[in-house]
Amino acid sequence: MSESDAVNASRRKFVTATAAAVGAVMGTVVGVPALGYLASPALEAGGTDAWVPLGKLDSFPVAVPTPFSFTRSRVNGWDKSTRSYTVYVLRDEAGVKVLSSRCTHLSCQVTWQADQNAFTCPCHDAKFGAQGEVLHGPPPKPLDTYETKIEDGTLLIRVVEA
């Protein structure tokens, strides 16, 4: 091997090593952010956990389940959507109870029927009592209740969305 061949060989080695190093750096600089980019929605906490005011507690009648409806908007990526809620406020001497209007069987909407003194579900003929207890039909458990608190006479419920 002549001297110039040796120089060429070491030069070739240097160029190869440099190209590999630069390529590795560029691959990392783009590759790591690319993984974060793809995983981004999965890494976000997602969901909401909010206290929603329903109005002055005094304004709700005593001993009669009273419906209250509201909508919550949410942003998922570029998509903005709203979700409607109907809850029943039951106020009595013991305090206040806020019931979800979703049937615990298959999530149909239950409504308070004053003449039957029960919540009835249109889907499978289920009935719940004023406190949400199951009276009739397939539901496996009583109506869900919301966590409540009262601030300055205003009733708030905790709405948690997955």
Binding site: P33, A39, W78
Partner: peptide, 13 residues
């Protein structure tokens, strides 16, 4: 806009 502000490294990509 979502890519630019909502997605991690979206601005970079």
């Amino acid at each position: 806009q979502y890519i630019m502000t909502g997605v991690q490294f979206g601005w970079l990509i």
